[in-house]
Nucleic acid binder design. Structure first.
Length: 320
DNA sequence: AGCCAGGCTTGGT
DNA sequence: ACCAAGCATGGC
């Protein structure tokens, strides 16, 4: 029986929090003071990498931390997963370079919506679009004043804006507060977005992706499309179902299946992973797309998606 | 300035 | 069944 508390230590080894939260599977976590702050569901959370695990702080008392262990997948036996990877040089290098990288278990709707917004966008830009979407349509969340007992904020911290030069803004200075807490909005529900207009969504800089997100939100909001039902399907069935949504092809479907539903066999192939496959496994060879997909589908074993995440992060961070 | 970005859809052979 | 263009937007 756990006592209700606003903080806990999740004991876990071989968990690289930074690699996990910054490897393009999720888009809202922000680094700050050796910690990561973000929103999980309706909760503000701060996570800190410790030697013996992950320290978690949140707003409001928590009696049962299962939701967080589930999101972070701290119970996953990483060694058991790594043992299923093919024993070849590229995979060994990727695992060595990204030791402790995990695949999260995210909320299906947030994951789906985020990846609908991801097509032909760099990760930094996906983050910006998602941030705008949450600011405009999410519910405000109260961040915890963790670690500092502040009955009332010091007057100079609140009332005195810091003059800050925004770079490249032609000499325009804007007053900003130094104490901004980063993410303070929940991810908008399908219902909320279903009531928005396409123009509203376009104002979040999502361009041609706006009608796709809007259509998905409306289909889910009115019950025509059931994200929960996908949990009871097998991988190919669930994949086919997701691909019925406008703007969702094989790659985005695979991302959602892997990052939200825990289908470890899903193997998203984007430009980075395709590059990894061609350069690491078929150097200086012309390989047809068809054959490459067959290789991807057969070579990496039951946790292929996990292997894919190692290749992806390896290519992005270590191979430039 | 031009190319590319965790792609998908559509219309051409 | 395969190929290219087009799609918004921003960073480099």
């Amino acid at each position: 029986m756990e006592n209700a508390s606003t903080e806990t230590l999740l004991r876990v080894r071989d968990y690289d929090l930074a690699a996990t939260l910054d490897s393009g599977q999720t888009f809202r976590w922000q680094p700050r003071d050796d910690s990561w702050t973000g929103i999980i569901g309706q909760r503000w959370v701060r996570l800190t990498q410790m030697r013996d695990g992950i320290r978690a702080e949140t707003a409001g008392s928590v009696a049962d931390w299962r939701w967080l262990r589930d999101y972070l997948q701290t119970e996953t036996d990483l060694d058991a997963v790594l043992k299923t990877f093919p024993d070849d040089a590229p995979m060994r290098d990727a695992v060595a370079a990204c030791h402790g990288l995990r695949v999260l278990r995210q909320d299906p709707w947030e994951c789906l919506a985020s990846f609908i917004l991801s097509s032909t966008k760099q990760i930094v830009q996906i983050r910006q679009i998602v941030a705008l979407l949450c600011e405009r349509f999410g519910e405000p969340i109260i961040p915890a004043q963790v670690g500092r007992a502040v009955p009332c904020p010091p007057p100079d911290e609140v009332s005195a804006p810091i003059q800050q030069q925004s770079p490249g803004a032609h000499g325009v200075t804007r007053p900003t507060f130094l104490v901004e807490e980063g993410e303070i909005y929940s991810f908008p529900t399908p219902q909320r977005l279903a009531n928005a207009t396409e123009a509203d969504l376009r104002s979040c800089k999502m361009g041609f992706r706006a009608p796709n997100l809007l259509a998905a939100a409306r289909q889910i909001a009115d019950g025509q499309f059931d994200l929960e039902r996908l949990r009871h399907l097998n991988l190919p069935e669930a994949r086919e179902e997701l691909m019925k949504l406008r703007g969702v092809g094989g790659k985005i479907a695979d991302c959602v299946l892997l990052f939200a539903y825990g289908f470890d066999g899903a193997f998203p192939v984007d430009v980075w992973v395709e590059r990894a496959l061609r350069e690491l496994y078929f150097p200086r060879r012309r390989v047809a797309e068809k054959r490459l997909r067959h290789f991807a589908a057969t070579h990496f074993g039951p946790h292929a998606g996990y292997a894919q995440q190692y290749l992806f992060h390896y290519m992005r961070t270590k191979m430039k």
